[in-house]
Design a protein around this nucleic acid. Sequence first.
DNA 1: CCCAATTCCTATCATCGCGATAGGTTTACT
DNA 2: AGTAAACCTATCGCGATGATAGGAATTGGG
Lengths: 168, 168
Amino acid sequence: MLPMKSRYALKALVFLARHQADGPVPVAGIAAAEAIPVKFLEAILLELRNSGILTSRRGPTGGYQLRVEPETVHLGDVIRNLSGPMAPLPCLSKTAYHRCTECVDEATCAVRLLMADVHAATLRIVDGTTLAQLVARVDASAVGEAEGQSERCRPEQGPVSAKLDFID
Amino acid sequence: MLPMKSRYALKALVFLARHQADGPVPVAGIAAAEAIPVKFLEAILLELRNSGILTSRRGPTGGYQLRVEPETVHLGDVIRNLSGPMAPLPCLSKTAYHRCTECVDEATCAVRLLMADVHAATLRIVDGTTLAQLVARVDASAVGEAEGQSERCRPEQGPVSAKLDFID
DNA sequence: CCCAATTCCTATCATCGCGATAGGTTTACT
DNA sequence: AGTAAACCTATCGCGATGATAGGAATTGGG
């Protein structure tokens, strides 16, 4: 499960990307629009500011604002900054590597082998998507809604085994 | 993070797949070989038995055994059976769907749009891999170890942006 | 210059899932 | 019979998570 912290952060960033022209937006405004607990969001935006993707101004007319262009914000970095590494196993994280205590031999660990693929696939998506792209996709899917052309996430699919619409 | 329950289960299943010929294997044997707490593994194997993947026999010479062929065991089902749906958002689970309480409009939710791709990619891997394939991959990677040919998880890569070896 | 709006900071809390253990009951082989 | 194993139910400690409380610092507008 993606932590609330990251969910809120992504929503707030999309909101801020949409209101880039409006100057600083106060936390309360974002919180109201996105139904996020104010105090919680406050802490989140503060972290995002400390990690360099937001600017802030205090006092009246203050608020938060994107510091960098949405094209340069990689969503994976957002998630990592707020919720830590997303490796499905400790032994798959580069920055927080930690040998799995239960693992007899890491080199021949089947679980590791399987999850390494999952991890790589996840990273290719979250790090390969920018804030700008996400905003664009939301707009596109809102339009394509009426036309039923919500195709995505299948670069060159190939001969997929037909019955592969997995669940859960 | 993949829960311990699922990690242990996968390890145990790989072990059992390797010892298919030996008849029933007692829990203690697997636990010792894979460094898993006995009582915990006991509960896990019981669940796997109740979900139809394993058979058991009681008393001396008893133990657990694969009920079905490793080729028919989809790893995604194993994880789901033990640890529940792996959807990164409640609103992405088919069997345990639950509207995200924080979501203002699900149809235009950016987080959902992003994580839907992550989810799909994850499922394609875990549901697309069988126990037999996993065992085979472990063997293959153990051999390729000395030859440096541990390529995997890149079907037809294409022009990847060069600097895309993500971390964490 | 003062007031109010806002960011910023620290502490604290309740809940919940997870990993694990304890202690027993039943089955069945030798 | 005796023993080795599966089977069952209950419980527990712990940490992360999501959230709140209460205030301090900053800064613009009147």
